[in-house]
Design a protein around this nucleic acid. Structure first.
Lengths: 237, 237
DNA sequence: CAACCCTTAATTGCATACAATTATAAATCT
DNA sequence: AGATTTATAATTGTATGCAATTAAGGGTTG
C-alpha cells in the first residue's frame, strides 16, 4: 500500500498550459534554452502545436517561479545565474534549513523517518558505484527529495514551498559535474548524522549538522569560481 | 533631490492586466471580496470594462502571489486565513528577519539610515496623536515600509522579495483595530533600538531586538484568538 | 423510495484575429 | 559622414468566439 508520492508540486500535465509549463522547464534544465535567451510565444506555440494562449500563461507562471524574467513588451527570457544569486540563495538556506530541521525533530514520525533513511541509503549506494552522468542526475534528484522531505517534516507548509522555490531556481543543470569525492562522502555522512540526531531527539544537534552541511556546500561552490561557461552547475549539498 | 521610491513592487498600472491585478487586490484588502469567495472572470471583466484575457492573467498572478487559490476548472477564490497560516508566517519571519537585520548592519549607509529614522519619527508622531482608522492605515503602511527598508539593507534582494510575499499575504485588512497602547509604545521603542544598535555597529544587538520585536507581536496576536469574523486583522509589529 | 443516468447550465480552457507597442533599419537632413 | 527621423517588421497585449469540463437538477428505473 504505497502511498503515491509527488515530489514535484508542478501542475500535472493535464491541461495544455501545464504541458507547456513542463516542456519549457525541461528545456531550461536540459540547456536547450540558454541564459538570457528570449522565449518567443509564437515559436513555442508552433513547436508544441498549441495556440499562444496556454504558452503565455505558462510563461507567466515560470516568471513567478523564478525560471524566467519578464521584460514588458519584450517577452520572457531565461534567468541568468550569477555568483551573487548563488550567494543569496545560500544565505537564505542557512537562515531557514537549520531551524527547519530543528522543528522537524518535534514533528517527525516513523514513516517519514524510514523514507528518509531509504533515500540516504540510495544516495550512498550511488556514491559508491561509478560516477556516470546518469548516476549524477539520479543523485541530484535524490538529494533534493531528501532535503525537501526533511523540511516538509517541519510542519510548516509555507516554509516548504518557499525553500522549494529558492532551491529549485538554483538548479539549472541537473548534474554533479564539478563534484569532489571527499565532499560527497562528507555530504552522505551529514545526511546520516542528521537522521541520527533526530532519532536521538536532539534538535540542536540536527540543526548544527544541517548548518555544517550547508556551509560545506557553500565553501565547495566558492572554490569553483565561474568555471562553467553557459549555465550554472548543480550545487551538491 | 528626492529619489523616487516605490515601496510596492506591484506592476505599474499601465497595461490592462496590471490594472485588473491592482483592482482585485484592493478589493480583497477592502473586504469587498470575502474569504473563500470565488472571483468569476466574466464578472470582473464586465465590471472593469475589459475582456476576460487580462482578468485571467491577473488572477493567475494573484494566485502565485498567494492572494487567491486556484481550483482547476472551478476558478480562483480568495485565500482564507487561518491561525495556522499566521503561525507559519511568524515562524518564517523569526527565521529570516533577525538575521537579515544582522546582515543589514554591515551594508547600512547613511542615506538609508536617515530614511529609516524619518519613518520611525512619523510612526511615533502618529502613535501619540489620536487613533482614528485613517491614522491606523497610515501606521500600518509606514510599519511595512520600515521593515521592508530594513530587510532591503541586508543586500539580499531575494530575501527582500521573499519576505515581501510572506508578510504581504498576512495583511488582509489594513488596520490596527485590535491594538494595544502598551504594545504600540513598545513597538515604537523597538524600532528606535534597532536603529541605535545599527549605529553602534552591533549586529548581535540589532538581531536580538528584532527577535524580541517579532516575538512580542506574535504574543499579542495569540491573545486575540479568532476574534474577527470575516478577515484577519493587521498584525502590528 | 432510493440510486443511477442523463440533460442542462455555468464556468473555465483554448484558439484565432486584431490592436498597440517597440526594436530595427533604411532614408533623409544637417 | 553622423545624427535624426521615419517607415517597416516583429512581438507582445487584448478581444471575441468556441470547445471542454464540471456541477447540479430532473427524470427514469430498479
Amino acid at each position: 500500500m504505497d502511498k503515491i508520492k509527488r515530489s514535484n508540486n508542478a501542475p500535472v500535465a493535464q491541461t495544455a498550459t501545464a504541458q507547456v509549463h513542463a516542456a519549457i522547464k525541461q528545456r531550461i534544465l536540459d540547456g536547450d534554452y540558454q541564459p538570457h535567451q528570449y522565449i518567443r510565444e509564437a515559436s513555442v506555440a508552433c513547436e508544441l502545436a498549441v495556440s499562444r494562449t496556454p504558452v503565455r500563461e505558462a510563461l507567466r507562471e515560470l516568471v513567478s517561479e523564478g525560471w524566467l524574467e519578464a521584460i514588458p513588451h519584450h517577452g520572457a527570457r531565461v534567468a541568468a545565474w550569477t555568483e551573487k544569486d548563488a550567494h543569496e540563495v545560500f544565505e537564505i538556506r542557512l537562515m531557514l534549513e537549520p531551524i527547519a530541521v530543528r522543528l522537524a525533530c518535534r514533528h517527525m514520525d516513523n514513516g517519514r523517518l524510514a523514507y528518509l533513511k531509504t533515500l540516504a541509503t540510495q544516495m550512498e549506494t550511488l556514491t559508491e558505484s561509478s560516477i556516470d552522468p546518469e548516476a549524477c542526475n539520479e543523485l541530484a534528484a535524490l538529494n533534493h527529495e531528501f532535503h525537501r522531505e526533511l523540511i516538509s517534516a517541519s510542519g510548516n507548509q509555507r516554509l516548504t514551498a518557499l525553500l522549494d522555490g529558492v532551491v529549485r531556481t538554483s538548479v539549472i543543470r541537473r548534474n554533479f559535474a564539478n563534484y569532489d569525492a571527499t565532499h560527497l562522502r562528507r555530504s552522505m555522512h551529514h545526511h546520516r548524522e542528521i537522521l541520527q540526531a533526530i532519532e536521538a531527539d536532539s534538535p540542536e544537534w540536527a540543526e548544527s549538522v544541517m548548518r555544517s552541511h550547508l556551509l560545506a556546500a557553500r565553501d565547495l561552490h566558492a572554490s569553483f569560481p565561474e568555471s562553467m561557461p553557459e549555465a550554472s552547475r548543480e550545487i551538491p549539498n
